[in-house]
Amino acid sequence: MPQLNTSTWFITILSMTLTLFILFQLNISKLTYPLNLNLKNINTETFKLPWELKWTKTYSPLSLPPQ
C-alpha cells in the first residue's frame, strides 16, 4: 500500500491562507465608510396600540365579590 506524501501540505496550506487573507483585504478595502461619524437624531413617534385606545378590564373570578 503506498504511503501518503504530505511533504507539500505545509506549502499548500500556507499559500491558501495567504491568498484568502489577501482576497479578504481587497474586498474590505473596496468598502466606503462615512467620514462624518456624528449620531443622527432619530425621531421616535409614539402611537397608540389598538388595545390602548379602548378601556377594557378583565375581571378574574376570584376578584369578584361573593354572591
Rank of each mutant, 00 (worst) to 15 (best):
L35E: 08
T44I: 15
M1Y: 11
P61G: 00
L39C: 09
L37Y: 09
Q3Y: 09
N5I: 05
T58L: 04
P50R: 03
K40P: 10
F10M: 01
L23R: 07
S7N: 10
L64W: 07
L39G: 06
E52N: 08
S29M: 02
T46F: 15
K40M: 08
K40Y: 02
S29Q: 08
P65M: 02
L49W: 00
I11P: 00
S63K: 09
L20R: 03
L31A: 06
Y59K: 12
I42L: 15
E52R: 06
K54H: 04
Q3I: 15
P50E: 01
F21L: 14
F21K: 07
S7G: 01
L37N: 07
E45H: 12
T6E: 09
Q3K: 11
P50V: 03
L37R: 01
W51D: 08
S29K: 13
L26R: 05
N27I: 13
W9R: 09
L62N: 10
L31H: 04
P50T: 02
K48W: 03
K48A: 15
I11G: 02
Q67W: 04
L64K: 13
Q3T: 14
T56A: 06
W55V: 09
E52V: 02
S60F: 15
Y59R: 11
N36D: 13
L37G: 00
T19K: 04
S7V: 13
L4E: 11
W55A: 12
S29W: 00
Y33S: 05
N38P: 00
K40S: 06
T32L: 06
L37S: 06
P2T: 05
K48C: 08
Q67D: 03
T12F: 08
T19C: 12
T8Q: 13
